[in-house]
Protein backbone atom coordinates (compact mmCIF):
# COMPACT_ATOMS: atom_id res chain seq x y z
CA UNK A 1 0.00 0.00 0.00
CA UNK A 2 2.24 2.81 1.17
CA UNK A 3 5.38 0.70 1.31
CA UNK A 4 7.21 2.99 -1.08
CA UNK A 5 6.71 5.93 1.20
CA UNK A 6 7.74 3.84 4.17
CA UNK A 7 10.87 2.66 2.42
CA UNK A 8 11.75 6.24 1.61
CA UNK A 9 11.36 7.27 5.23
CA UNK A 10 13.64 4.42 6.28
CA UNK A 11 16.35 5.59 3.89
CA UNK A 12 15.93 9.14 5.06
CA UNK A 13 16.83 8.11 8.59
CA UNK A 14 19.94 6.38 7.40
CA UNK A 15 20.35 4.49 10.67
CA UNK A 16 21.29 0.82 10.79
CA UNK A 17 18.68 -1.81 11.53
CA UNK A 18 20.12 -2.20 15.02
CA UNK A 19 20.08 1.48 15.87
CA UNK A 20 16.50 1.77 14.67
CA UNK A 21 15.52 -1.33 16.63
CA UNK A 22 17.09 0.16 19.72
CA UNK A 23 15.13 3.39 19.29
CA UNK A 24 11.94 1.47 18.72
CA UNK A 25 12.56 -0.82 21.70
CA UNK A 26 13.26 2.05 24.06
CA UNK A 27 9.92 3.59 23.24
CA UNK A 28 8.14 0.27 23.90
CA UNK A 29 7.07 0.66 27.51
CA UNK A 30 6.05 -2.99 28.00
CA UNK A 31 9.31 -4.10 26.45
CA UNK A 32 11.41 -1.91 28.72
CA UNK A 33 9.52 -3.04 31.82
CA UNK A 34 9.91 -6.70 30.91
CA UNK A 35 13.61 -6.19 30.27
CA UNK A 36 13.87 -4.68 33.74
CA UNK A 37 12.13 -7.66 35.32
CA UNK A 38 14.30 -10.14 33.44
CA UNK A 39 17.42 -8.24 34.50
CA UNK A 40 16.31 -8.37 38.12
CA UNK A 41 15.92 -12.12 37.88
CA UNK A 42 19.32 -12.37 36.21
CA UNK A 43 20.83 -10.44 39.11
CA UNK A 44 19.24 -12.85 41.59
CA UNK A 45 20.66 -15.79 39.65
CA UNK A 46 24.08 -14.15 39.49
CA UNK A 47 23.98 -13.56 43.22
CA UNK A 48 23.37 -17.26 43.83
CA UNK A 49 26.27 -18.21 41.57
CA UNK A 50 28.58 -15.77 43.38
CA UNK A 51 27.39 -16.99 46.77
CA UNK A 52 25.77 -13.73 47.91
CA UNK A 53 22.57 -15.45 49.02
CA UNK A 54 20.72 -18.76 49.16
CA UNK A 55 23.85 -20.64 50.19
CA UNK A 56 21.97 -22.70 52.75
CA UNK A 57 19.18 -23.82 50.42
CA UNK A 58 19.79 -27.49 51.30
CA UNK A 59 20.23 -27.03 55.06
CA UNK A 60 17.47 -27.96 57.47
CA UNK A 61 17.20 -24.76 59.47
CA UNK A 62 13.72 -24.61 60.92
CA UNK A 63 10.64 -26.51 62.02
CA UNK A 64 8.35 -28.32 59.58
CA UNK A 65 6.00 -26.02 57.66
CA UNK A 66 6.88 -22.81 59.45
CA UNK A 67 4.61 -19.95 58.35
CA UNK A 68 5.91 -16.82 56.64
CA UNK A 69 7.98 -14.77 59.05
CA UNK A 70 10.88 -12.34 59.18
CA UNK A 71 13.25 -15.27 59.52
CA UNK A 72 11.70 -17.52 56.85
CA UNK A 73 10.28 -15.16 54.24
CA UNK A 74 8.26 -17.85 52.47
CA UNK A 75 8.13 -20.26 55.42
CA UNK A 76 9.73 -23.69 55.45
CA UNK A 77 8.92 -26.93 53.66
CA UNK A 78 8.01 -30.36 54.99
CA UNK A 79 11.47 -31.08 56.42
CA UNK A 80 12.16 -27.53 57.56
CA UNK A 81 14.22 -26.09 54.71
CA UNK A 82 13.90 -22.38 53.96
CA UNK A 83 11.61 -22.03 50.92
CA UNK A 84 12.85 -18.54 50.06
CA UNK A 85 16.44 -19.76 49.71
CA UNK A 86 15.32 -22.70 47.61
CA UNK A 87 13.26 -20.47 45.34
CA UNK A 88 16.27 -18.18 44.82
CA UNK A 89 18.42 -21.19 44.01
CA UNK A 90 15.72 -22.27 41.55
CA UNK A 91 16.19 -18.95 39.73
CA UNK A 92 19.83 -19.83 39.19
CA UNK A 93 18.88 -23.28 37.85
CA UNK A 94 16.29 -21.73 35.53
CA UNK A 95 18.88 -19.35 34.06
CA UNK A 96 21.42 -22.15 33.79
CA UNK A 97 19.04 -24.40 31.87
CA UNK A 98 17.65 -21.52 29.82
CA UNK A 99 21.05 -20.15 28.81
CA UNK A 100 22.60 -23.51 27.95
CA UNK A 101 19.62 -24.61 25.89
CA UNK A 102 19.10 -21.23 24.19
CA UNK A 103 22.78 -21.01 23.28
CA UNK A 104 23.05 -24.60 22.10
CA UNK A 105 19.82 -24.60 20.12
CA UNK A 106 20.52 -21.23 18.50
CA UNK A 107 24.08 -22.15 17.50
CA UNK A 108 23.04 -25.50 16.10
CA UNK A 109 20.07 -23.99 14.31
CA UNK A 110 22.17 -21.14 12.89
CA UNK A 111 24.92 -23.38 11.54
CA UNK A 112 22.72 -26.11 10.09
CA UNK A 113 20.13 -23.64 8.81
CA UNK A 114 22.78 -21.51 7.11
CA UNK A 115 24.52 -24.48 5.52
CA UNK A 116 21.22 -25.94 4.32
CA UNK A 117 20.11 -22.60 2.95
CA UNK A 118 23.39 -21.89 1.18
CA UNK A 119 23.40 -25.31 -0.45
CA UNK A 120 19.63 -25.32 -1.01
CA UNK A 121 18.48 -27.91 -3.50
CA UNK A 122 21.53 -30.10 -3.01
CA UNK A 123 21.98 -33.32 -1.06
CA UNK A 124 23.21 -31.46 2.04
CA UNK A 125 20.01 -29.42 2.15
CA UNK A 126 17.88 -32.53 1.70
CA UNK A 127 19.67 -34.22 4.59
CA UNK A 128 19.12 -31.30 6.95
CA UNK A 129 15.45 -31.08 5.98
CA UNK A 130 15.12 -34.81 6.56
CA UNK A 131 16.68 -34.58 10.04
CA UNK A 132 14.38 -31.68 10.90
CA UNK A 133 11.30 -33.58 9.74
CA UNK A 134 12.32 -36.67 11.67
CA UNK A 135 13.04 -34.89 14.96
CA UNK A 136 9.85 -32.87 14.57
CA UNK A 137 7.84 -36.07 14.30
CA UNK A 138 8.90 -37.54 17.63
CA UNK A 139 6.77 -36.02 20.43
CA UNK A 140 8.98 -33.90 22.69
CA UNK A 141 8.45 -35.72 25.97
CA UNK A 142 9.07 -39.07 24.33
CA UNK A 143 12.28 -37.78 22.77
CA UNK A 144 13.41 -36.65 26.21
CA UNK A 145 12.43 -40.02 27.64
CA UNK A 146 14.27 -41.89 24.89
CA UNK A 147 17.40 -39.74 25.28
CA UNK A 148 17.27 -40.05 29.06
CA UNK A 149 16.88 -43.80 28.66
CA UNK A 150 19.85 -44.11 26.32
CA UNK A 151 22.04 -41.78 28.41
CA UNK A 152 21.09 -43.82 31.50
CA UNK A 153 19.88 -40.99 33.67
CA UNK A 154 22.66 -38.53 32.89
CA UNK A 155 21.85 -35.02 34.22
CA UNK A 156 22.45 -33.68 30.70
CA UNK A 157 19.74 -35.77 29.05
CA UNK A 158 17.24 -32.93 29.50
CA UNK A 159 19.54 -30.33 27.94
CA UNK A 160 20.44 -32.58 25.03
CA UNK A 161 16.80 -33.34 24.31
CA UNK A 162 15.74 -29.69 24.44
CA UNK A 163 18.57 -28.61 22.15
CA UNK A 164 17.75 -31.49 19.80
CA UNK A 165 14.17 -30.20 19.54
CA UNK A 166 14.47 -26.42 19.78
CA UNK A 167 17.10 -25.89 17.07
CA UNK A 168 14.64 -26.91 14.36
CA UNK A 169 12.51 -23.75 14.25
CA UNK A 170 15.61 -21.58 14.26
CA UNK A 171 17.16 -23.61 11.46
CA UNK A 172 13.98 -23.35 9.34
CA UNK A 173 13.87 -19.56 9.67
CA UNK A 174 17.60 -19.12 9.08
CA UNK A 175 17.48 -21.40 6.06
CA UNK A 176 14.72 -19.33 4.48
CA UNK A 177 16.55 -16.08 5.18
CA UNK A 178 19.85 -17.41 3.82
CA UNK A 179 18.18 -18.53 0.60
CA UNK A 180 16.95 -14.96 0.21
CA UNK A 181 20.33 -13.42 1.12
CA UNK A 182 22.54 -15.58 -1.03
CA UNK A 183 21.04 -14.11 -4.19
CA UNK A 184 21.97 -10.56 -3.20
CA UNK A 185 24.82 -8.56 -4.70
CA UNK A 186 27.15 -8.58 -1.72
CA UNK A 187 27.32 -12.37 -1.81
CA UNK A 188 27.89 -12.30 -5.55
CA UNK A 189 30.66 -9.77 -5.04
CA UNK A 190 32.30 -11.87 -2.35
CA UNK A 191 32.18 -14.87 -4.61
CA UNK A 192 33.58 -12.90 -7.53
CA UNK A 193 36.70 -11.90 -5.60
CA UNK A 194 37.21 -15.51 -4.58
CA UNK A 195 36.08 -15.65 -0.95
CA UNK A 196 35.77 -19.28 0.14
CA UNK A 197 32.35 -20.77 0.72
CA UNK A 198 32.64 -21.27 4.50
CA UNK A 199 33.81 -17.69 4.84
CA UNK A 200 30.89 -16.43 2.76
CA UNK A 201 28.42 -18.41 4.86
CA UNK A 202 29.73 -17.64 8.31
CA UNK A 203 31.39 -14.25 7.83
CA UNK A 204 29.08 -12.58 5.36
CA UNK A 205 25.67 -14.23 5.37
CA UNK A 206 25.11 -15.51 8.90
CA UNK A 207 25.69 -12.13 10.65
CA UNK A 208 22.76 -10.83 8.61
CA UNK A 209 20.42 -13.31 10.28
CA UNK A 210 21.33 -12.11 13.76
CA UNK A 211 17.93 -10.51 14.30
CA UNK A 212 16.25 -13.91 13.78
CA UNK A 213 18.76 -15.63 16.06
CA UNK A 214 18.24 -13.14 18.86
CA UNK A 215 14.46 -13.55 18.91
CA UNK A 216 14.70 -17.32 18.57
CA UNK A 217 17.16 -17.48 21.47
CA UNK A 218 14.68 -15.72 23.75
CA UNK A 219 11.91 -18.08 22.64
CA UNK A 220 14.11 -21.12 23.32
CA UNK A 221 15.02 -19.70 26.72
CA UNK A 222 11.38 -19.48 27.77
CA UNK A 223 10.54 -22.89 26.35
CA UNK A 224 13.48 -24.41 28.23
CA UNK A 225 12.36 -22.98 31.56
CA UNK A 226 8.82 -24.18 31.06
CA UNK A 227 9.93 -27.64 29.95
CA UNK A 228 12.33 -27.94 32.87
CA UNK A 229 9.45 -27.70 35.34
CA UNK A 230 7.45 -30.47 33.69
CA UNK A 231 10.44 -32.73 33.07
CA UNK A 232 11.70 -32.33 36.63
CA UNK A 233 8.26 -33.24 37.90
CA UNK A 234 8.31 -36.39 35.76
CA UNK A 235 11.76 -37.27 37.10
CA UNK A 236 13.47 -36.61 33.76
CA UNK A 237 14.84 -33.17 34.51
CA UNK A 238 17.15 -31.63 37.07
CA UNK A 239 19.06 -34.28 39.01
CA UNK A 240 21.38 -32.19 41.17
CA UNK A 241 20.56 -29.03 43.07
CA UNK A 242 17.16 -27.43 43.30
CA UNK A 243 14.77 -26.08 40.72
CA UNK A 244 11.25 -24.69 40.54
CA UNK A 245 10.13 -27.93 38.94
CA UNK A 246 11.48 -29.94 41.85
CA UNK A 247 9.87 -27.55 44.31
CA UNK A 248 6.47 -27.93 42.65
CA UNK A 249 6.98 -31.66 42.51
CA UNK A 250 7.74 -31.69 46.26
CA UNK A 251 4.73 -29.51 46.92
CA UNK A 252 2.16 -31.86 45.36
CA UNK A 253 1.97 -33.75 48.66
CA UNK A 254 2.03 -30.62 50.77
CA UNK A 255 -0.78 -29.07 48.74
CA UNK A 256 -3.10 -31.96 49.54
CA UNK A 257 -2.28 -31.46 53.21
CA UNK A 258 -3.20 -27.78 52.95
CA UNK A 259 0.27 -26.21 52.91
CA UNK A 260 0.76 -23.98 49.89
CA UNK A 261 3.91 -21.91 50.46
CA UNK A 262 6.25 -24.15 48.47
CA UNK A 263 3.87 -24.34 45.52
CA UNK A 264 3.04 -20.64 45.47
CA UNK A 265 6.66 -19.49 45.83
CA UNK A 266 7.88 -21.58 42.91
CA UNK A 267 4.82 -20.85 40.75
CA UNK A 268 4.90 -17.08 41.17
CA UNK A 269 8.63 -16.78 40.62
CA UNK A 270 8.41 -18.91 37.53
CA UNK A 271 5.34 -17.14 36.19
CA UNK A 272 7.02 -13.75 36.64
CA UNK A 273 10.12 -14.73 34.73
CA UNK A 274 8.31 -16.53 31.92
CA UNK A 275 5.75 -13.75 31.50
CA UNK A 276 8.43 -11.05 31.46
CA UNK A 277 10.53 -13.03 29.02
CA UNK A 278 7.55 -13.63 26.73
CA UNK A 279 6.75 -9.90 26.66
CA UNK A 280 10.43 -9.08 26.16
CA UNK A 281 10.60 -11.53 23.28
CA UNK A 282 7.50 -9.96 21.67
CA UNK A 283 8.88 -6.45 22.04
CA UNK A 284 12.23 -7.53 20.61
CA UNK A 285 10.48 -9.10 17.66
CA UNK A 286 8.50 -5.92 17.02
CA UNK A 287 11.60 -3.77 17.32
CA UNK A 288 13.66 -5.90 14.95
CA UNK A 289 10.91 -6.35 12.37
CA UNK A 290 11.77 -3.99 9.52
CA UNK A 291 8.17 -4.09 8.31
CA UNK A 292 6.82 -2.24 11.33
CA UNK A 293 8.12 1.25 10.84
CA UNK A 294 8.66 3.44 13.86
CA UNK A 295 7.00 6.83 13.74
CA UNK A 296 9.37 9.60 14.72
Amino acid sequence: MNTVAEAASIDAHGDSLWLKALHKFRRDRVGMWSLGVVSAYALVALGVVLGWWANDWAAVTGPKWAPMSAQYWFGTNIIGQDIFARALYGTRTAFEVGLIVALGATLLGAVLGAVAGFFSGTFIDEMVIWIMGVLDSVPFILLVAAIAYSLQGSPWAMHVAMIATFWITTARLVRGEVIKLKGLEFVEAARAIGVSKPLIIFRHILPNTLHILLVQATISFVAAIKSEVILSFLGLGVKEGMSWGLMISESTFEVLAGFFNNFIAASILMFGLVMAFNLFSDALQDALDPRTVSRP
Binding site: V229, I230, G245, V255, S267, F271, V274, N278
Partner: peptide
Protein backbone atom coordinates in the same frame (compact mmCIF):
# COMPACT_ATOMS: atom_id res chain seq x y z
CA UNK B 1 -0.18 -14.16 27.36
CA UNK B 2 -0.96 -15.18 30.93
CA UNK B 3 -2.12 -18.62 29.76
CA UNK B 4 1.12 -19.04 27.82
CA UNK B 5 3.25 -18.09 30.78
CA UNK B 6 1.80 -20.43 33.38
CA UNK B 7 3.22 -23.92 33.40
CA UNK B 8 0.77 -26.71 32.62
CA UNK B 9 1.79 -28.36 35.87
CA UNK B 10 0.94 -25.27 37.90
CA UNK B 11 -2.45 -25.01 36.19
CA UNK B 12 -3.22 -28.64 36.97
CA UNK B 13 -2.32 -28.26 40.63
CA UNK B 14 -4.15 -24.95 40.82
CA UNK B 15 -7.39 -26.36 39.45
CA UNK B 16 -7.04 -29.36 41.72
CA UNK B 17 -6.75 -27.11 44.77
CA UNK B 18 -9.66 -24.93 43.66
CA UNK B 19 -12.09 -27.65 42.64
CA UNK B 20 -11.10 -30.93 44.25
CA UNK B 21 -9.48 -30.27 47.60
CA UNK B 22 -11.10 -29.53 50.91
Amino acid sequence: AVGMSISFLIVIIGFQILLSSS
